[in-house]
């Protein structure tokens, strides 16, 4: 919407109160503060290593223009030079000797100039360096990390959906002895975050022989109390007659679960799937503790290891960070509404 329209629309509906102006100012500032950093990250990820080290940084990814001149095998950098007579021309630099640069005119290679470097300004143009994205694919184990993250996220989400929905089905459809105990167990796990059982879970995983395997990341978080609650609340609303009718028709309990309850619970399953994907893709502390070999690193651990290296190659790091953002961006664009209602309803994330 254009600002003008916005102003007019507001005027028609009533007078401006100072709080309205303050509100829009606050929201405008919010847009800059919330979006700004990510936009800056994406812009920076397309810069060359050299222009990343520049201070003050340029807003857009610029790189120096180069020209091919006859008689020179390498392309030469182009500068805007101010000549002795005050004339400004675009010249290519052949070599630099101390504070004097030897320049030639690309249009007329025979013409040579000697210009003090202080009188040179690089000719730059907008250019997006995609090498930041393509090179890590070959140079580092980046594809490995990416694949590990995709694998963990997919498999873990499938397991979570399966076992959480089974538990939710049991807790919503049946009356049985020990139901309260089971519910208490689920609530209990809510109170025990991984931060306080880090060491013993590591022991369990070691006993199972899973250290440095991706299953060590997948399994411990597969059963989630949030998921059981979310699905149970939803399944409680399903009509009981349907299940009774299926029992009359000699459907087995497993068939009722798989054929009737699961399809009906699809909206809740979708919400849990989104949550699980976000949890797994972003998980940090536990993988950090349990994965020590770089071939089993997930993307988040890989990024962290990479930024901790002595000479951080920011151009690659920024590009890889942007790649790790892509699934999140997709979820955000398409499914933001689901998550928002999910949080508003459960107070969990």
């Amino acid at each position: 919407m254009k600002p003008i329209q916005l102003l007019r629309a507001r005027r028609r509906s009533g007078r401006w109160h100072w709080t309205d102006i303050a509100a829009y100012a606050y929201l405008g500032l919010g847009v800059v503060l919330m979006f700004g950093p990510v936009v800056w990250l994406v812009l920076s990820s397309f810069k060359t290593q050299a222009s990343l080290l520049e201070f003050p940084p340029s807003l857009l990814p610029l790189s120096q223009q180069e020209v091919r001149v006859q008689g020179f095998p390498q392309p030469l950098p182009l500068f805007a030079a101010t000549l002795d007579n005050g004339e400004r021309r675009e010249l290519a630099q052949v070599r630099r000797i101390g504070l004097i640069a030897q320049m030639i005119d690309p249009a007329d290679p025979k013409q040579q100039y000697r210009v003090p470097t202080a009188k040179l300004a690089p000719v730059r143009h907008l250019s997006f360096v995609t090498a930041n994205y393509t090179e890590p694919l070959q140079k580092f184990a980046f594809t490995r990390y990416l694949w590990n993250s995709v694998f963990v996220t997919t498999i873990a989400t499938l397991i979570t959906l399966l076992i959480n929905s089974m538990a939710a089905y049991a807790l919503s459809i049946y009356e049985f002895r020990g139901k309260t105990v089971a519910m208490l167990m689920v609530i209990g796990t809510l109170m025990i975050p991984i931060t306080i059982i880090l060491v013993p879970v590591y022991l369990v995983v070691t006993k199972l022989g899973l250290v440095n395997s991706l299953w060590a990341v997948i399994l411990p978080g597969a059963a989630t109390p949030t998921g059981v609650f979310l699905l149970r609340q939803y399944m409680l609303t399903l009509p009981r007659d349907l299940i009774e009718a299926a029992r009359m028709d000699k459907a087995s309990e497993w068939q009722i679960y798989w054929r009737i309850v699961m399809p009906l619970a699809a909206p809740a399953l979708a919400v849990l799937a989104i949550f699980s994907i976000m949890w797994r893709w972003n998980e940090f502390l536990w993988p950090l503790a349990v994965l020590t070999k770089s071939e089993s690193f997930t993307l988040q651990i890989g990024l962290n290891a990479f930024q901790g290296e002595l000479q951080t190659q920011w151009n690659y790091l920024l590009a890889m960070t942007v790649v790790s953002l892509i699934p999140v961006a997709l979820v955000f664009v398409f499914l933001q509404r689901f998550i928002a209602t999910g949080i508003a309803n459960t107070g969990m994330k």
Partner: peptide
């Protein structure tokens, strides 16, 4: 059958939450 449906989730909870808490 309720117990059968409940079992996998509770096994996970026990193995990765309750047992670890005790070991802690």
């Amino acid at each position: 059958m309720a117990y059968v449906f409940l079992l996998p989730n509770l096994v996970f909870f026990s193995l990765f939450v309750f047992v670890p808490l005790a070991i802690d």
